[in-house]
Amino acid sequence: MPGENQTKMIEFILRGIATNGGAQIALFMLFLGLYILTLVGNAMVIMLVRSNTSLHKPMYIFLGNLSFVEIWYTTITVPKMLCGFLYKDNYISFTGCFLQYFFFFSMGQTECCLLAVMGYDRYLAICQPLRYHMLMNSRICSILSALCWINGFLWSVVPITVVSRLPFYGENEIDHFLCDTGPLLEISCVRYFATEVTSAVTISFVLLVTFSFTCISYIFILVTTIRIPSSSGRRKAFSTCAAHLTVVIMFFGCAMYMYIRPSGHHPFYFDKSVAVFYTIVTPLLNPIIYSMRNKEFIQAVKKVIKH
């Protein structure tokens, strides 16, 4: 088809976050600082989990995987967004755009799975404490971690395939700082109903299944916690899960707003603000939230500092 030949040669322009000249530099410095802090914070979590034998437990192994996801999740999008503050036209090739699109969703869906598995881990630790080491040993932990990664990458093949087959020629300005489903559909020459439904269903399915699984785990945790006779025991159980629940609410709340909503016109400036939150702010807060609320992790940090 002619459209396909033109698609192979096209370059997109990412409009990014449009502001005046002075604000561009200020935002560049702000997001660069947040990006560096995100890399340092999550890298420290990975190094601590690997180097401290006291943290060689399923909960921290999943946390190390989550931090690794966050490093790549931000690296896929933020450097290109920073270029938009420095150049008038922030070009990205067709191949580069859909590679970003693929890895962005792969990491996002891997994170969804990891958050669900971490909720299941907390459920076993609180609701099945006597059987925990049998139900969540190192072998099962490794299998679950691998399945999260495999599912994230395999499931993303469906939306990337159907969207990349759309005809793109003429309009090539993406009103976003990353290649995402909504902005790409907006500039497509033809809006195929089957394509929109397929991409929406595949993304929504992962979000709804992992979020529902996580909610079920926390319902059981809440019921078990309420039955604990001592107030100190209840506080300890709630404290253990508060960090994970905070991350779940932030990440799933933003993602479900973006990808599970009625079709129609949605202001891109607001969508970009929400995207900034779950692509930059949440990955930055994850290591802070987990480390500040966990005594074992704080002890590991103190041990490293002391030596």
Rank of each mutant, 00 (worst) to 15 (best):
V209Y: 10
V209D: 05
T210P: 04
T210D: 10
T210R: 00
F211M: 13
S212F: 13
S212H: 07
F213I: 13
T214W: 12
I216P: 00
I216R: 10
S217N: 12
Y218K: 11
Y218D: 04
I219V: 15
I219M: 07
I219G: 05
F220P: 06
F220G: 06
I221D: 04
L222W: 12
L222C: 14
T224I: 01
T225N: 09
T225S: 12
I226H: 11
R227T: 08
I228C: 09
P229E: 13
P229H: 08
S232G: 02
S232K: 11
G233L: 05
G233E: 09
R234Y: 02
R234T: 04
R235C: 07
R235A: 10
K236Q: 10
K236D: 03
A237W: 05
F238Q: 06
S239E: 04
S239T: 03
T240G: 05
T240N: 13
T240I: 03
C241M: 03
A242S: 14
A242P: 00
A242I: 12
A243K: 10
H244D: 02
H244S: 02
L245W: 11
T246D: 02
I249C: 15
F251S: 00
F252Q: 06
G253W: 00
C254N: 07
C254F: 02
C254R: 01
C254L: 09
A255T: 06
A255I: 04
M256I: 13
M256V: 03
M256F: 00
M258W: 04
R261V: 00
R261C: 02
S263D: 11
S263Q: 12
S263K: 11
S263N: 13
G264K: 05
H265A: 11
H266T: 12
P267D: 14
P267F: 09
F268C: 08
Y269W: 14
K272G: 06
K272L: 09
K272I: 12
